[in-house]
Every structure is written in C-alpha cells, then in structure tokens.
Amino acid sequence: MSMGKEFLTIYWREMIRFVRFKGQLFAALVQPALWLLLFGVAMSSNLDSSMIPTIPGVVSVDYLTFMAAGVMAMTALFTCLFGGMGLLFDKNWGIMKEMLASPMRSYHIQLGVGLGGVTKSLIQVGLIMGFGLVLGVEFFSGFSASETLWAVLGILAFVTVFSAGFIFLSAGMAMRVESMESVQAIMMLLTMPLMFSSNALYSTASFPGWLQAISNVNPLTYFVNGIRYFALGSDFTALGTHYQYTEGDILSSFVVLLAFTGLTFVFAWHSFKTAKVT
C-alpha cells in the first residue's frame, strides 16, 4: 500500500495558520533577532577581548559570533517545543475530532505538524543567520563559495533533524495531557535546563562533572556543535576555550540527533495511536 499524501494537508493548514496570525508571525521572526541584538551585543561589550587568551595560529572567534550559533539553536528549540501546542487547541477547541474520526491514519497529523515545525524553524534560523551577518557575525569567514554552500546545507540538515525531534516531543505531549497549563509547565521545566546545560551561550569545558554529564545528553549541545562546525570551522577558540571538531565528531553528533528524533517520533506515534478525543 502506498503512503497517502494526507500529511501534506495537515502541513498546508499549519502553514496557513503560520502566516495568518500576523502578530505571532511577527513575534516569531523578530524575537530571535532582538535576542541576538540585545543579549549578544550587551554580552560582547561586557567582555574585554584583550583579557581572553588566544592561541597563536588558531582563529579566535568573538562572542557575538560564538553565541549566534546558540541563538539559532535556541530559537529552533523554542519554536518546536511550543509547536505541538496547537494540537492541544485542536483537541479542546478545534478539529482534532474531525481528524481522528476521518479515515486518515493518525501518523499523518504527526508528519504534517512535524513538517510545519521544521519549516518554521528553517525560516527562523535562516533569518537569524542573515540578520547576524548584517550585525557583524563572522560566519563562514574565509570560506569559498562552494564551502559556504556546503556549510549552509550542513546547518540546515542539523536544524531539520533537531527541529523534527522537538516538534515530535511536543506533539506527543500535547496529545497526552489535558490542559494548557500542564503543557506549559512541562515546557518551562524543560527549556531552562536544556538551555543552560548546553554549550549555546558559553563553553561547557569548565562545568563540574555532573553538569557536564547532563550537557552530554542534551540534544541542544550536539545541535550547537553541528552549527559551529559548519559556520566557524573545525578549529577555533572562543571565550578562551579551544574548540576542535573532527568530521567524526560531527557525524556522531548528527547520529545522536537522529537517534533522539527517532525516539521522539516513536513517542509521538504512540501518543497519536492511543489518543482518544470524545
């Protein structure tokens, strides 16, 4: 049996809603830029770059450039973590009943919503990247045109897999819980540790062991590694930490993200299969 195209209908609706809520669309596009602008610039001007040790012969990356990768990652994280929330609305005040009562297999909802979340992430990440370059973020410096293209594709691949992972997670949770409040509580509980135990905003090299252990199971860390590798190269220093990535490191980061996404896919699959809305 061939797979139906119904998930494209779900995706179509997701995207209609994305562009139709003008306020939300505006916020989604402007908020990460503001973050980069305010937090990035504020932090950079607090750091005296002459105090930060560098290694002769190794590229030294300024803070704005360093954290731009983190802001891209966090934006994708937030967008997707909250991206499944729409399903809760559908369940309580919308058309979830219609969808579940239809002959469409429920994984189409998951795939459609997932594709929607990934698309939104890609758009946002693309915009931040563009805005960052305008602000003076030094991504792809010294790259040839084809190297830059390769790097952008690499980043997009990481964004796609990471975003899919978190949108499935949030979709699965939305199908399981009853109230808006509980999802919000779970999200809040998740975002902080994910953000602060990762390498998005600072180096994790001097973390105590337990925190480093958390950081090592945090998908955000692997995602940020991927972005930095493609945007900054395999050998650089930032905030006094020497970063060296091999192709193997990045490949395994990618595999970790794939595994994470696989897990959340199964979680969401199961949540949809057992969902009852009557």
């Binding site: 119904e6 209908t9 179509w12 209609i16 058309i95």
Partner: peptide, 16 residues
C-alpha cells in the same frame, strides 16, 4: 481561523 472554503477543502483532502 480557516475560511468556509478551506474548512471543506481540508475535509475533502483528509478523506483523500
């Protein structure tokens, strides 16, 4: 937030 037409369109599409 869908229009009347989109509502029917969506339904027809999820029923293939």
């Amino acid at each position: 937030d869908l229009t009347v037409k989109e509502t029917l369109e969506f339904h027809g599409r999820i029923y293939s």
